[in-house]
């Protein structure tokens, strides 16, 4: 994982890399913190931009009083529930859309009209419908995760190599088997990519939804410490959101690699 991260940082540069990946990573982070420190030192009001040292100490406090773990667990649980619900609805619908003209015609317009509306646009309405609690963030997150999953699955199914379907048909494979053993595995890389997009979008939405409509979670914590004028803690939670988002994507990439050993090495070639 570290290697691919280093690769992403190095970009397409052809020059041989003299530093190991972890050293490059540390160097970049060190430079960033230095820049941050200088900026905060230049800022007259420490409330507006706390220094990295203040944030580090706030982070230690929030770990010690359990706030960080508790709120992160709440948000991650919501993410897991929301993406699971979205997958259970969107993937079968996407398979239907990709294979059946009728489903495609039925769903195309509603989807195209709803898709440009950001999940957070529904927050005010959802406040009436669900009140403050788990309902609102989960609704917003399911909504956000739904479209990438639906469209990614449908596109994956439509792009399945026709020759593979032809090959299975000449072996007399029945329809149901064709779906399960040819179309789904062939569309799986596309489904997994859309799952990564869905998780990323959903994670972005959780913060917005919790800022307004939940009594717990990372978004709620940001809002709470803002009202306390405790900006180092606000920064702490912002950093946690970033790190957890990155870790979720890393976990999904590992899951993809485990599910599709054939697809990963295909890309390496």
């Amino acid at each position: 994982m570290m290697a691919s991260f280093g690769g992403a940082l190095a970009g397409g540069s052809a020059a041989p890399r003299r530093w190991p990946a972890w050293a490059i990573y540390l160097r970049t982070m060190g430079l960033f913190c230095l820049l941050w420190y200088v900026m905060s030192w230049l800022t007259p009001n420490k409330l507006l931009l706390p220094s990295p040292i203040d944030v580090a100490s706030a982070m230690r406090d929030r770990i010690e009083d359990g706030e960080l773990i508790a709120n992160a667990t709440v948000s991650l649980t919501r993410l897991l529930i929301s993406v699971s619900i979205a997958s259970l609805i969107a993937i079968p619908l996407g398979l239907a859309m990709g294979t059946s003209r009728l489903f495609e015609d039925l769903l195309e317009w509603p989807v195209e009209l709803l898709r440009p509306i950001a999940g957070i646009a529904w927050i005010p309405l959802a406040l009436f419908m669900f009140g403050i609690g788990n309902g609102l963030p989960i609704f917003i997150m399911v909504y956000t995760a739904f479209f990438p999953l639906l469209l990614g699955t449908a596109a994956g199914v439509r792009n399945v190599d026709r020759r593979l379907i032809a090959a299975a048909k000449t072996m007399g494979v029945p329809r149901g088997t064709l779906m399960r053993h040819v179309i789904v595995p062939a569309a799986l890389p596309s489904i997994m990519t859309s799952a990564r997009l869905a998780v990323a979008a959903s994670w972005t939405a959780v913060v917005a939804a919790e800022l307004v409509g939940a009594p717990s979670g990372l978004g709620y914590a940001i809002e709470y410490y803002r009202s306390m004028l405790d900006t180092p803690s606000v920064m702490t939670f912002i950093i946690v959101i970033g790190v957890l988002g990155f870790l979720c994507d890393t976990a999904l990439r590992s899951l993809s690699a485990a599910l599709m050993p054939w697809a990963l090495s295909e890309k390496k070639r």
Binding site: D161, R163, L164, A166, A167, K169, T170, M171, G172, V182, P185, A186, L188, M260, W262, A263, E266
Partner: peptide, 19 residues
Amino acid sequence: SGPGAERGVMFQDYALFPW
């Protein structure tokens, strides 16, 4: 009228299942 298992095909580009 359609494909059937009694007529097996070996395709020019193989059409192997990558997974």
